[in-house]
Amino acid sequence: MAIYEKIAAKPAPLSTKGPIHWIRENLFPSPLSSILTLMSLYFLYLVLPPLLNWMIFDATWTGTKEEITNHGARWIFIIEKFNQFIYGFYPEEFYWRPNLVLFIFTVYVFAFKYIDTLKMKIFIIATFPVIAFILISGGLGLEHVETEKWGGLLLTIIVASVGIIASFPIGILFALGRQSKMPIIKTISVMYIEFIRGVPLITLLFMSSVILPLFFPEGMDFNKLLRALIGITLFQAAYIAEVIRGGLQAIPKGQYEASDAMGLSYWQSMGLIILPQALKISIPNIVGSFIALFKDTTLILIIGLFDILAMVTLTNSDTNWLGFETEGYVFVTMIYWAICFSMSKYAKSIEDRFNTNHK
């Protein structure tokens, strides 16, 4: 008879692993948490069924306005005005251009995540706006489309993308300038950052639309979209500068001393050692600023540009489709949430990929 008998492996008790353990640890860890969990479940019980009935089960998806008989969401309005929500007044025969830009952007997003070369990353970031404007506005033999016809989600993405891409390098320079030991450069950087952060974006949009043309030479003029892009870029650069500065301050002093000991110049030290670490640390705050900028693009309505939110009011001015504001705002809300959530998850995946912490 063997002294030791082989014991079959048994699964861990449900009290230490599995869904029951997760529920106990996260939903009912204490009496107060249990009360809050039950209150939340009751709130969802009151809210979710009517919401689902309105949005899905009792909604109207097909037919005409006159055929609506139920009290659910009237999504036929969104279906009827879908192209206007997405493209604005962009000519229908040229829809393939923004669609191609979206495809290129998607490829860039997946490629950017897996490219380790800094030069290639910079090339991708700098190239995309050029390609987008050539295709959408008309270039290289394509028929020109005035920016006044751009609108909807197309305009929202363009304004947000250009603002994000253009403000990022400017913000880095101002962050470095604010930490510079040169008094003039530091003073200029501090004055710029504090002035821009002290005024709302709507003020800068008015200034870029009304005051900026006064500084142009006689006979020179920029359209409204370009003025808005300048104002948004200057505004966002100040916030990015502060985010990057926070990352730079989080770098241990020993990293600066190590780069000096290696005989690296200032720009070599920043480009190869300091900035990569500061940017990695600042990813969550950078993404937060970009998400805020994406939502702030709705303010371009005040200078006569119609983004996707402005299209709700504009499409409801159609006498054949009056009274559909609720469906329009719900549709726009879902689009904003989907894009902002995707930006957050994409940034989290980048953060995890470049995470070098040893656990």
Rank of each mutant, 00 (worst) to 15 (best):
Y87P: 01
L36Q: 07
I78R: 01
K81T: 00
M120G: 00
N53H: 10
E66D: 13
I125P: 00
S30R: 04
I122A: 15
A59V: 11
F43M: 13
F57M: 02
E93I: 10
F43E: 07
L32A: 04
P91K: 13
N26D: 01
P129A: 09
H21C: 10
G88A: 03
R24M: 15
Y42P: 02
N26C: 05
I122F: 09
R74D: 10
K81H: 08
P91R: 11
S33C: 11
K81S: 01
Q84N: 12
G63Q: 04
T69V: 15
W54K: 08
G63C: 09
F77S: 12
T16K: 05
P91F: 11
F28W: 12
K81N: 01
F128P: 04
G88S: 04
M39D: 04
Y42D: 12
W54A: 01
Y90W: 10
P49T: 02
V101W: 03
A111F: 13
T117H: 09
M55W: 11
G88N: 05
P31Q: 00
I35G: 05
T64N: 07
F94Q: 10
V101A: 15
I35R: 12
F89H: 12
L14A: 12
G72T: 03
I23D: 03
Y114N: 06
T106M: 14
I122Q: 15
L102M: 15
E67K: 15
L36V: 06
L41A: 15
L118W: 10
T60N: 07
F105D: 06
I23E: 03
L41E: 09
T127Y: 05
Y108H: 07
R24Q: 15
F57A: 11
F82H: 07
N99P: 00
G88P: 05
M39H: 09
L102Q: 09
L41G: 15
L46T: 08
